[in-house]
Amino acid sequence: MTSVLDINNLEFSWPNSTRPLLKVEEFQVSQGEHLFLQGPSGSGKSTLLNIIAGVLTPQKGDIHLFGNDFQAYTAAQKDKVRGDHMGFIFQMFNLLPFLSIIENVTLPCQFSKVKKDNVFDKGLSLEKEACRLLKELDLDIQLIGDKKVSDLSVGQQQRVAAARALIGSPKLIIADEPTSALDADVRDRFLQLLFKECKTSETSLVFVSHDLSLGRQFDKVLSLKDINKASPMQTQSAEVPT
């Protein structure tokens, strides 16, 4: 299996801090793999996601994304890779309230020609593909109409967000606590739909949550505490002179 993401000897600290916040020796995601990353808040979770997204730059380490040396890219190139090959789902509030459902779902294609072409290669228009994805995710646009997303329930909004992450067949989807606002039964259904869609397009999924009970349904489960060697306690003890 080819690896989509390959991180080695990563070290990150904030500019004004001498203490590393994140220290990851090895972290890998293979193509098509569904990985569950468990981490409570404060464990450096969002920092790691921002590094993978190319928004933050680590001081040390080696990141290979889709087989390329991500660290060698300029900020603009990183933005392009993110737009072309990644999709994101966040906890909440990640839709633009002033756009309609379809406009929100097709928004990534406005920023990326690659995603747009991926849709066109299927022989579909952007709107058709958005409707198809939403229908797969149990949100029939023909039934509810193309309303403003602010009129939707939280569960429905999260499905719109998932469809937006999935459109244009990205190679990697990063989901940050996407189910924490959902009820248990809605959550399971949402996960299954997400898995199914990722399988169809061979998309890798990195799913981050504090709730370990969700991990059962994933190919691989990792704990951020285990892979991050720079947890606050350890760092402090390391600073004590021996």
Partner: peptide, 14 residues
Amino acid sequence: RREMAIFRSLGAQK
């Protein structure tokens, strides 16, 4: 700020 973060996540440049 959320709006801007969404744009960034979609590959919008600075």
